[in-house]
Design a protein around this nucleic acid. Structure first.
Lengths: 354, 354
DNA sequence: CTGAAAGCGCTTACAG
DNA sequence: CTGAAAGCGCTTACAG
């Protein structure tokens, strides 16, 4: 007997009043329908279906059978009202089209889905006001909020964290959960790589002024440059985009450095493009490196030397920490910084003697 | 007097019972608090705040003042229950890390946000089962669903469309709303460009078997090739990824064509990479073109010739159509196919006489 | 124009 | 283990 045939048979047996009620509601059954069909109280249906073990096996079986028969699914909105839990979490990003976001989004989405949560992504378009507005809009309907590279002030962030679980990606705020890369490791390796290639002067092209991670990279770089006896200047802040990288070329030239480390790959790519346009050879005249290892870093010519971050893992961890705060998970998410890897490609090399 | 000072003053005046109730609830006020503060019935508060004009100016002013004073925000879950509207819509994509998605997501997100809707993005990872599961999970909590390049059967899609408003991107199903690019225009231009460059044989590297738009491109290409007297073979189907493009190189060589049009830019990029690795000169030995004009098309060397699609507009339209179906918008969204533009770059050129 | 009441579909103390 | 009841925070006929 086909599945179809089976359902057909059962539909015929369905008490007329239940069938009518369901039809009137657009085909969606409720726990009341199940209760009537199974001959139990609605509260028993609720227990049987959402707290296994709080009900006798026999009853649970009856309820499940009825639920299957009516193709029952919980109404998430109805569930959210008494519990105050929407099973939704928000992920706030500055720019959806920045490839750095991909990995974070994918990791977050998968982890959230696996835990029965829905992920809502909101974009601030690099504007602080838009970000604040989007957060206000989102906050009432999410159980927790992940802020990726936010422009918010520490105060505002702490304030948000008092209302709902908040996790920061690439930023550290006292008392707020965060997921951070191991900045030291990657920066030291990169500076070492450039020093080994003979560079004695370099520039850091910094990202947005409000970027915690940009400042952190700069600090570590200062330290590493000092140890290796390299001259280091900061250029910027610039928008963290291809255009931002392009625009900075003149100032890099003016600084007469032989190597540039950009805040992120997008800026590094922009700088390579601008250099190529200006007939500056990369890396012969100028070595250029970035951070993140985004899609596109391998495509540009020369391919970009970069410090790879574990973006997907960052997304997973962030969601894990929210779940933890929500009391959903057994084991707490790991807390050490995410390891970072130097990926040497064609955009950096020995100082040209020509 | 500072804003802070003002609030401070008003808080002091707040009736103790209201203040206590709000505090107990974690700081969130309800319409009952407003009602008490303003001396009206909760139903009047609801009307004043959500249906301007259904209440006297005086009452509305009183209610608004009280709402402001309590920093009131509607509880979206509570609103959703009686109305059945969650003010959320779902966007289902196969692969979040495919840059084609960016523009669509951005357009959709902005349009949705502007209309007071939240966009939920779900990823199927190119798996039909995962897609079906994600949709089942999403459907109960969204007011409408946008399917971008879905693997679902026509039947399943029609069935979904009966339950909630559904909009398809890059696919046509009888009776279901869709947003489509003007395939003809772009393909004809591209084939014409290759013919003008002297090519007499070419291959179409097709995308996923279930891709409606891939089949459509093939049809139009067949027609255009015939008119221009060009030999045309189909190679594929292949996964719509860089790897899928790479893997197809051998078959392209075997076919002895001088030009390849790939289903999308990702595949075209993969093919350029594989060709470069195999010391096949692009475009001297082989012209390669793609579709979409994604991030990365300009970065690869040689830069990719492609048929640009209006991705962001597609996202905007899709949301517009959902809103329309929901009865929210005044003017219906435009319905003509989205114009498409040939972007000629370095990866295509004259047939080499060498 | 406004109030009183019922209802949306669940959950969860409280009894038994 | 299970039932009866109250409640989550809104909306919306129904009266007046």
């Amino acid at each position: 007997m086909t599945r179809w045939g089976l359902e057909e048979t059962m539909d015929d047996e369905l008490p007329a009043d239940i069938a009518a009620r369901i039809r009137k509601r657009g085909g969606t059954a409720t726990i009341y329908d199940i209760a009537e069909l199974a001959g139990v109280n609605p509260s028993t249906v609720s227990r049987a279906l959402s707290k296994p073990g709080r009900v006798s096996e026999k009853t649970e079986a009856k309820v499940r059978a009825a639920a299957d028969r009516l193709d029952f699914h919980f109404n998430p909105m109805a569930r959210a009202l008494p519990t105050g839990r929407s099973h939704t979490m928000g992920l706030m990003v500055a720019d959806i089209t920045n490839p750095v976001i991909f990995g974070i989004v994918r990791g977050a989405e998968q982890t959230a889905a696996a835990a029965g949560y829905t992920l809502v992504i909101a974009e601030s378009q690099e504007s602080g006001d838009a970000e604040d507005e989007a957060i206000s809009r989102l906050l009432p309907s999410v159980d927790g909020l992940i802020l990726a590279t936010t422009r918010l002030s520490n105060e505002r962030i702490s304030q948000l964290a008092e209302r709902k679980p908040v996790v920061l990606i690439n930023r550290l705020v006292e008392g707020v959960a965060g997921v951070l890369p191991d900045v030291e490791e990657g920066v030291r390796d990169l500076v070492g790589h450039l020093a080994d290639a003979g560079h004695t002067s370099m520039a850091y092209l910094s990202g947005p002024e409000t970027s915690w991670i940009s400042a952190r990279r700069w600090e570590v770089m200062l330290d590493a440059a000092e140890r290796r006896g390299i001259a280091l200047v900061e250029i910027g802040p610039q928008p963290p985009t291809i255009e931002g990288g392009r625009q900075a070329l003149r100032r890099v030239q003016a600084a007469r450095v032989t190597a540039v480390i950009a805040f992120n790959d997008l800026m590094a790519i922009g700088m390579i493009q601008a250099a190529t346009t200006a007939s500056i050879r990369v890396p012969d005249d100028l070595s250029i490196a970035g951070f993140d290892d985004i899609f596109g870093s391998e495509l540009i010519v020369p391919a970009l030397t970069t410090v790879r971050a574990q973006l997907q893992l960052a997304g997973e961890r962030a969601v894990g920490k929210i779940l933890e705060a929500l009391g959903g998970t057994a084991e707490p998410a790991a807390d050490e910084p995410l390891a970072t890897t130097l990926v040497v490609r064609g955009s950096t090399g020995a100082v040209s003697r020509g």
